[in-house]
Nucleic acid binder design. Sequence first.
DNA 1: CTCAAAAATGAAAATGATTATCAAAAGCAG
DNA 2: CTGCTTTTGATAATCATTTTCATTTTTGAG
Lengths: 143, 143
Amino acid sequence: MIQKKKHAFNLFAASKGLRSTRQRDSILDVFLSTRQHVSVEELYLKVKAGNPGVGQATVYRTLKLFVEAGLAREVLLHDGQTRYEHVVAGEHHDHLVCTGCNAIIEFENETIEKLQDEIAARHGFLIRSHKLEIYGLCSACKN
Amino acid sequence: MIQKKKHAFNLFAASKGLRSTRQRDSILDVFLSTRQHVSVEELYLKVKAGNPGVGQATVYRTLKLFVEAGLAREVLLHDGQTRYEHVVAGEHHDHLVCTGCNAIIEFENETIEKLQDEIAARHGFLIRSHKLEIYGLCSACKN
DNA sequence: CTCAAAAATGAAAATGATTATCAAAAGCAG
DNA sequence: CTGCTTTTGATAATCATTTTCATTTTTGAG
C-alpha cells in the first residue's frame, strides 16, 4: 500500500516533469507513516528529525504536490492550521470533531453521499469534493 | 425581523454586561443589511462608509460577539478569510461552492440532518453545529 | 561520464488575516 | 456630575503560509 502510493506519486511526478529528490521522498515516507490529520508543522518536525536539513517551505510545497497527485487531502478544522489526511481510493469519510478534547472521529455514510449527489444534480452542479464536519462534544467530554 | 435580531442582541448584551455603543449598533445594522457570507473586510468597508471612525479591530471583535449571541455563524470557505452568515432560527443550510466563479448555492436537506443525528448518537457524540460544503463547478462553469 | 539547463531547496523576508496591547474615550450606576 | 469599567482605535504583534532568490540538485543530451 505504501509502495502503491509511492508509485502513484512517481507517476504523477513524471507526468508533470517534476524531479525526484531526497526531501520529497522523506516527506512522503513520513506522511505515509503518519496518522490522520497531520498539520504541516507536525510533519515538518518529524521530517527534520530524520533529515535535519529540510526546510519548512519545502514541506509546504511538497504537501501541495501530494494533494495535486491525489495522495493527500486538505482538512481545515477550527484551529487555524491546515491539516492533511491520506486519500484512500474509493473511500471518503467525514469527521466528528470534539471541541472539548480535539479528538476526531471518522465516519462514512453512503446515504449522505447519495443525497449530496442528488442535490448537486438538482442544481446542475458538478461535484469535485466535499467536506462534512460535525462539531460538538465526544462521549468523554460531554459530561 | 431586523428588529427581532437587534432585540436578541440587546438581550444578549444585557445578560453579559456588555454596553451599547454607536459602533456596535452600526456594525449590526450593516451586518443585517448584508447578503450571506460577508467577510470581515467587506463588512469593515461598509461600516466605515457610514461611520468613518470605526476601526477594523472593532469589527472583528463585534462579529465574535454576534456569534456568541447566536446572530451570526462563521463560515470558512477556501479563500483564507473568515466569513459570517446570518443565523435564522430553526433553519440550517449547507453550501455548494463553485470553485470556478466562487458562487455559493445554499441548500437544506432534512434527511442529511437526520442521518447526522443518528451517526452522532451512534458515537455518543453531542452535536453543537455542523458544516457541509460541496465543492465543484456550478452549471455555468462546468462547460 | 560531463555539463549546462531546468527544477528544487533553504533561509529569510514578505504577506495577509487575525489578535493583543494600551492609552484615550465613552457608557452607565449611583 | 462622578468615578469606575468597558469599549475603542491605532498600532504593534502573531501565526500560518507564501515568495524571493541565491545556491544546490537533478536530469538528460552529448
